[in-house]
Amino acid sequence: MSRPELQAPPEIYYGDTEAKKYTKNTRNQQIQADMTYRALELLNLPPDEPCFLLDIGCGSGLSGEILDEEGYIWAGVDIAPSMLEVALEREVEGDLFLQDIGQGFGFRPGSFDGAISISVLQWLLNAETSHPTSSPPHRLTRFFTTLHSALRNPSRAVFQFYPTSDDQIQLITSIAQKAGFGGGIVVDYPNSKKAKKVFLCLFVGGGGGAQQQIPQGLEGEDDEHARFERRREKLKTKDRSGKRKNIKDRDWILKKKELYRQRGKEGVPRDSKFTGRKRKATF
């Protein structure tokens, strides 16, 4: 079968059935989680500052769940209503927006401390309609320009994506550069057909020289699962001065479960998947 982005527009391809299938597949969950941890590592956020992040093409919240676990506050955008629906069902904590990133963002300057995007960018390389404003270069330009302004100076945006050619990489990086970004491509396990992963690592601002060096790709063949576990460990052991919640922190899990339980008990309003614990009147 050809690649998803060649089959149908994203909001059609990720319809109800595919959105559920995509999210439930445990192998897919693991791959997306692994890439999310690696993207967070490449984001290189200041260790002691609680951050506000943007998840671009957040889908059903597979990355978002990790952002929650790691104690980040975040907002996510996606063009597929069915994927967002699944994210709501999974009760991720980020704010979700139905948005076509090719139309650009309206976020005010300096809104976010960083952005991640997992397995999304390749979707912008296909024209949505025959309208001139929907050509890939137009869409990429609007996307990168408005993203650049939405990010703080200095900060980073890290994209894992699936390019099919060097020309595509060239197109994306040149447009990102014109939009004001520094940075470049990081390839993990370049010699492994299975493990190879491409990350676009973009910088806003110089951030004092050494900080904004393009990171090294990982080498070797590396076993996928070991890699995943290592990344989890690494992030977990980072000193967050107790502000980040450890994934395996029992108190935290209990508290969270308790919270969900209480939300469930209260019942949900009509037409809403929300399960808040207190409710106020409508205005």
């Binding site: 939300r263 808040g276 409710r279 409508t282």
Partner: peptide
């Protein structure tokens, strides 16, 4: 004059979130 967007006919829900004073302080300048 394209900010802030005005709320219209909104319905709200309150959900408890963990208090992180550092995060709030970080946001204030934005």
């Amino acid at each position: 004059n394209n900010f802030p967007l005005a709320f219209q006919d909104v319905q709200i829900e309150l959900q408890e979130a963990e208090f992180n004073p550092e995060f709030v302080k970080n946001l204030i300048p934005r």
